[in-house]
Amino acid sequence: MPPWLRLLKMAFHAPFREKLGWRDESRLTFRVWPNDLDVNLHMNNARYLAMMDIGRFDLAIRCGFAGLVWREKLKPVVASALVRFRRSLAPFQTFTLRSRVIGWDEKWLFIEHRIESRGDLYCHAVVKALLLGRAGGWPTAELLRSLAVQAPATEIPDWLAHWQAAEGGLRG
């Protein structure tokens, strides 16, 4: 099934699924189809990232900030990703994508994605994303306020702060 069709299917079903809180986890189940495969006959690395996009959209819809994105004409943008592939997903294998917000600062949201099957972790990733408006990045404080979430301005696990610092060396 192509990613755009999976996205449409998720978008249709999301409003009927349980609402999620700011820190709750979205869980979606998929199957590896032949068009997901690479030359090694396992799921293509890029397809993992496409699936994670769908997980973030499900999270946005079910957490309630998709409406804000629509009203304010914001664009969800991923700036970077830290991805670890642990096992290969085979043709027709089912898997679960788990997505949740694990941290934020004044500008960025950090969203964790876990792809699991048969009780094993296949891929673990964290993406650094923001909501982009006409005037630039939408402040995280505005997002939290719009969701009526009482939370500190910044909440980043220590290991994530180290990744962010290391990422600073990539600027060129």
Rank of each mutant, 00 (worst) to 15 (best):
A153T: 07
L8D: 04
W163D: 11
I54Q: 02
S80N: 15
D24A: 13
R17P: 04
M1H: 06
E72H: 10
R27P: 05
L82M: 11
L49G: 12
L170K: 13
I54C: 00
H124A: 09
E155M: 14
L160E: 09
Q164D: 13
A14F: 03
L147Y: 12
A79D: 03
K19L: 05
L143T: 06
I115W: 01
L74M: 04
L20Y: 10
F95G: 07
E112G: 04
G133V: 13
S146R: 11
G55N: 11
P76C: 08
K9L: 07
H42N: 15
I61T: 02
Q150H: 09
E106D: 14
L7K: 06
L130C: 15
G103R: 14
R62W: 08
L121H: 12
A46V: 13
E116A: 00
R87F: 06
I115A: 01
R62Y: 03
A141T: 02
R31E: 09
W104M: 10
E72T: 05
F95H: 08
K75F: 07
L5D: 10
P76Y: 01
F110A: 13
I54P: 03
E18C: 11
G137M: 02
L170M: 11
V83H: 05
R84N: 14
W159C: 07
A11S: 10
W22N: 09
S117Y: 03
M1N: 01
L160C: 11
K19N: 12
K128M: 15
F95D: 09
G21H: 11
V39M: 15
E142W: 00
R145K: 13
L89C: 05
T154S: 02
R56D: 07
L89W: 04
L37F: 11
A153R: 09
R71K: 14
A60I: 00
H13C: 05
D58H: 13
E25C: 08
A166N: 13
L97V: 03
A141C: 00
G133I: 08
H13I: 00
G172D: 11
Q93I: 02
D38I: 13
H124V: 06
L170R: 14
N40W: 15
I111W: 02
C63E: 10
L20G: 08
W70Y: 08
F57E: 08
P152S: 07
R134T: 09
G103P: 14
W4S: 09
R23P: 10
E25V: 11
D58P: 03
F85Q: 01
R31W: 12
N45F: 14
R17W: 02
K9I: 01
S146C: 04
A151E: 07
L5R: 11
A165S: 14
R71L: 05
Y48T: 04
L89P: 04
D53L: 12
M1R: 08
V101A: 12
R86I: 12
E142D: 08
F92I: 08
P3C: 03
R27H: 04
W108C: 07
P157D: 08
L82H: 15
I54G: 00
F95N: 04
L147F: 06
